Every structure is written in C-alpha cells, then in structure tokens.
Computed example of a mutant assay.
Amino acid sequence: MSDFFASAEQSLLERHGLADFDQLWQVQLDAVDEPNTERGGWSSVYRLELEGRGFYLKRQSGYLTRTLHHPLGEPTFSREFRNISRYQKLGIPALQAVYYGQRKVNGEMRAILMTRALDGWTDLHELLQRWGDFDPAQRQAIVAACGELARTLHDAGQVHGCFYPKHIFLRARGEAFQAQLIDLEKTRPRLFGQRDRVKDLEPLFRRADAWGETEVRQFLAVYLRAPQDSPLLQAWVGRLHKRRQHKGAH
C-alpha cells in the first residue's frame, strides 16, 4: 500500500518537515492518553498543532488485527483508514484522514494514521451530561441530527458497530446541528437488513441515559421518515425494547 496524503494538507506537512513516514514517526509529541498494549504490540495517540490547525497523530507497532482476509494480521489503523475512505466515498459524515502509511521495521509492522481534529465539535456523551441546559428546540435539533446521521449510515449499506454517544460528534449550525462519526475500526457492510440496523442503534439508546421516550420517538421519526404515531415507528420501538431486554438478560 502506498502512502496516502490528503491534498489539502500535504503542503502544510512539507513546510513543517513532516511529509514522510519517518518524519511523522520520529516527531516528539505528548500522548493524549495511556498507550494500548494489547495484541502483542502498542498503539498511541498524539495531538499535533500546525499553523493553528489541530490534528491527531496515531502510531502503532506490532498492533495487529486478524481477519479472514488477513489471517497473519494487519495494523488496526489500516482497517480504520480503509473505513474512513469508504465513508468518504459513500457520503457518510465522519472524521477525515490526512495521512496513512505503514512500514515493516525489524520484523514488526508499524503504521501511522493522521486525522483532522474535530475542533469546534462536541461528542453526544458530553452534550447528554448537560441535557437539562438545552431548550426543547435545541434538544430536538440534536436528536434529529443523530437520527439523520444513522439514516445516512444505514442507507449507505453500513453499520458502525460502536454507535455510542462518545463516537457521535455534533456542532450547531444556526438552529440546526450537524453530526458525524469517529472510531470506524469495527464498521462493516450491513448484511442482515433490519436485524443489523436494530443491533447498531440499540446501544445508543441504552447509553443515552438523558433520553426518554420522547427523544427515542423523535430520533426514529427522522430515521424512518415516519410520523411518531405510525405503526412502523411503534414496531421499531418494540424491536429496540426487545433487543435491550435480550442484552440485559446476558
């Protein structure tokens, strides 16, 4: 796989001497959290500021995931970058890649994934912590943005796999909100129709503690493009409730 550079940022990286794999691997940065040390290797995330613009630089070595297509393993960032590219082609709002590259060094596979920081965006988890601060119109606009995002995702034939409040980022645009997704490592094609869709959405409602029946119905009305009192929407409420009961039993 040849290195990927986003054309909009390549000259910026060149100006700062960060336009190849080795330079990005060696640049000294502070990690934003503790490194992951599973899968026989390590993976870490760093914040990078260049000319007032924010980025996240992720580096890993020997941190592999094994699949049927890659029985010997591939860097987890490789899969994530592939999914970022797929979302972009399908028109699903999500984080944007700036650089991806991988190298084998001393028998270990290294990989770098650099993405644009979502500065100015806030994850849904944080918004739910202060749900009471929003007026009814703002709440409905946030819920509607999440419902539209889920509809776009599933209409494109994808399931996210971790459709959680911490992975949905929003920002206000006038009276409306925009929404996009992060953490695409577990995303996959939607194979089982409605079952996949219910399975993808139920964790969101289980984790969105501040949402009640009103918000769930508002979300589904946008997602299904159906009236809140429609038999279709009521059937979905039942399916989601059944899924939650099933998860609770396990």
Rank of each mutant, 00 (worst) to 15 (best):
M109H: 07
L204N: 03
F4T: 00
R86D: 04
A31W: 02
R151F: 07
D33L: 13
Q60K: 09
Y87R: 06
Q245T: 14
D155M: 08
K89V: 14
L127F: 00
Y56F: 05
T152R: 14
D135M: 12
D183W: 01
F163G: 03
Y223M: 00
K89Q: 15
Q10H: 15
L12E: 04
L72V: 08
D123H: 15
Y46D: 03
P136M: 05
L29K: 02
G212H: 04
S7R: 14
K58W: 08
D135R: 14
P203K: 00
G62I: 02
H160K: 03
F134E: 10
V237D: 15
V237F: 13
G73V: 01
A141H: 10
E108T: 06
G132K: 12
F55E: 02
R188D: 03
L24E: 01
L184K: 02
L201Y: 07
P35E: 04
C146M: 07
V237R: 15
V216A: 13
A226T: 15
L240M: 08
L64W: 08
L170G: 03
A8E: 15
D20V: 02
H250P: 08
L12A: 10
Y63K: 01
P203C: 06
R139T: 04
Q140T: 00
R217T: 13
V32T: 00
G238H: 05
R86E: 12
R47S: 12
S78K: 10
H125I: 00
G17I: 10
A6L: 07
L170T: 05
R173F: 10
L191H: 11
Q178T: 04
R239C: 08
M109T: 08
M109C: 12
L220K: 04
G73D: 09
L201R: 01
S43L: 02
V159Y: 02
L201Q: 02
H160E: 09
R53Y: 02
Q129R: 13
S43K: 00
K247F: 14
Q234S: 13
L232R: 06
V237E: 15
R79K: 15
G157F: 07
V45L: 02
V222F: 04
G147R: 04
R39Q: 14
T152K: 05
R116M: 11
F219Y: 11
T76H: 07
A141Y: 06
P35S: 05
